[in-house]
């Protein structure tokens, strides 16, 4: 699949048409409103509103900023059930230029490996029409929380993988160089890489714009391209959905309460200071070492 991303084969003047940017987004249930059935331990999906995965909005905004600066277009791509079209339409309303939904019964039950296969196939098809400069994703989704699909897509397409990006410092269309700051443990890595690449965007690095009236109107009328697995150029349906997923969920369950229930501190008729003293008494009764450790903490100066 690498060849379609090869900019050397792009006959167009790279500066003229601007950047081709694709943002992968996912429609997710609004986790703040998920309820678990207390008896059956199943998710009560009915009536739970869906949203664009909040982390993806930072990716979308970052892509639109690059487009606004260098010209070009932003395509949003999603894999999901037909209703995921809503999320794509919302992204158009925020300012994306085009939207593609890949939807097929064969995608159902996909884990991250199967998801990255389907998305990579669709990206390869989009890239065959016109080479893609940067694929964006959020750092992870709020329903799966795996952060694995971005790296999976990069790997499958041979894209340079830049995860947890806090800032894009430079993008040089002529040389294809991109310089980013990447969140690492204890600091930021400054990385130089080349287009085409895949960037997963860290949360909180920008603020999603409010769509303009024009964008809202355009989104309402715009056509969302809908592709089946075959339309998306998927060669091997065995690698999609449940069949293509090496991981299998064997059991879903609610955590059991601790065997001993919490010791409740009596509060009735007590002033806050009395409650606080009762709490500290119990804390030190449970953890006697803590009292001496805390007591040892004050410095000489504080004592005086």
């Amino acid at each position: 699949m690498d060849a379609v991303f090869d900019h050397d084969t792009d006959p167009e003047d790279p500066g003229r048409r601007g950047l081709n940017l694709v943002v992968c987004i996912k429609q997710v249930p609004d986790s703040a409103q998920i309820r678990v059935h207390p008896v059956t331990n199943t998710i009560m999906r009915q009536g739970v509103p869906t949203i664009i995965n909040p982390y993806d909005l930072f990716a979308l905004e970052e892509a639109m900023r690059l487009r606004d600066q260098y010209g070009g277009e932003v395509t949003v791509l999603s894999m999901g059930p037909p209703m995921a079209e809503e999320a794509l339409r919302r992204a158009l309303g925020l300012g994306a230029d085009k939207a593609v939904l890949i939807t097929d019964r064969r995608f159902a039950g996909a884990d991250t490996l199967a998801t990255s296969y389907a998305l990579a196939s669709a990206l390869a098809k989009l890239g065959a029409e016109r080479p893609i400069d940067v694929v964006f994703t959020g750092k992870q989704t709020i329903d799966g929380d795996t952060a694995q699909v971005g790296p999976g897509v990069a790997r499958r397409l041979g894209l340079n993988q830049l995860t947890y990006v806090a800032a894009i410092d430079l993008l040089d269309r002529a040389t294809g160089e991109i310089v980013v700051r990447r969140r690492a443990e204890g600091g930021l890595q400054v990385l130089s890489s080349r287009l085409p690449c895949l960037v997963t965007v860290l949360e909180g690095v920008n603020e999603i714009r409010r769509g303009s009236i024009e964008d809202m109107l355009r989104a309402a009328r715009a056509e969302v391209t809908v592709w089946s697995a075959a339309d998306a150029g998927i060669e091997d349906p065995q690698q999609c959905g449940l069949k293509g997923s090496p991981t299998l969920v064997k059991r879903v369950f609610a955590p059991t309460p601790r065997e001993e229930s919490a010791e409740m501190v009596a509060v009735d008729g007590k002033r806050p200071a009395q409650i606080a003293d009762a709490v500290l008494d119990l804390v030190f009764a449970h953890a006697p070492k803590l009292e001496t450790e805390l007591g040892a903490a004050p410095s000489e100066k504080e004592r005086r």
Binding site: P272, L280, H286, S299
Partner: peptide, 29 residues
């Protein structure tokens, strides 16, 4: 899953706890 529970408004208990800790174990540097 807590070991100790206090059914009360955190906004009143927190400052009281701070006060009690300062009184009983001193103020860490």
């Amino acid at each position: 899953f807590a070991h100790l529970g206090v059914v009360a408004d955190a906004l009143t208990v927190l400052p009281a706890l701070t006060e009690a800790v300062r009184r009983r174990v001193g103020v860490p540097a």
